[in-house]
Write a protein that binds this DNA or RNA. Structure first.
Lengths: 116, 116
DNA sequence: GGACTACTTTGATCAGCGTCGTACGATGGG
DNA sequence: CCCATCGTACGACGCTGATCAAAGTAGTCC
């Protein structure tokens, strides 16, 4: 018999109505976090924490994910040992119309202009 | 005869094509600077440095103006002893479409929701 | 159970930024 | 001229946030 499978690990998420513009702006002001958001937007699919391309260590990345989650920008959930990340694009759009889209678009523009 | 009037003091401004998304995001991530931008947007007219409502000292405000100017968000020019501030809304719009508008709108939404 | 993978937590460091008061510089009006 | 007004420059200070390595925890697979 499949073991109780230990209640799936859960993650706390704020309701978008509870996040402040300040939080979202701070979250999106960091280049590493913007890279995470951009990659999620580009991919158009949820991604595991380990599958992002960033120049920082894993533990630093954990912190950035926390910041993004607390700002209501991403949603996280466990799948086995992996932790998935999803953009809360629609919810943020309702809260701050056009904001996330503009930032993602701007980041894309720069990426195309400055081929790092 | 009106004295040469000493060449009008000038102020350096970056071309919007030279400012990075990082600069603009950092500029807009500070609440005091967002307040400045919001007040300029609301007023719809240029304002002197001294006519903004902020909770910080004058010298601190000077620093915020510098940051906004260097990020291409505002344009400054002297008028007598006063220094005027103008939103470079159209230019920023061309560089990062929708960004400034979304931030201003979001700030306005919060202001209406949280009557500080 | 044991090894492996995936992420987190902890603790430390370190740079940068926002803040202020004070002193300075420039303009314009009597 | 002198003074009032307006804003800038200069240190100084405190705090927050980004960063990392190392140790810890939670699932998975054989």
């Amino acid at each position: 018999m499949p073991r109780p499978r230990s209640a799936v690990r859960t993650v706390e998420h704020p309701d978008v109505s509870e996040v402040s513009l300040q939080q979202v702006m701070e979250a999106l002001a960091d280049p590493v976090r913007r890279a995470v958001v951009s990659q999620l937007a580009d991919r158009g699919a949820d991604m595991t924490c380990g599958s992002f391309e960033t120049p920082v260590s894993v533990s630093t990345l954990t912190h950035h994910f926390n910041t993004l989650r607390e700002a209501g920008v991403i949603r996280q959930y466990y799948v086995g040992t992996a932790k998935m990340n999803a953009l809360r694009a629609d919810e943020i759009e309702r809260r701050f119309p056009g904001l996330l889209a503009a930032v993602v678009a701007a980041a894309g523009t720069e990426a195309r202009t400055d081929p790092a």
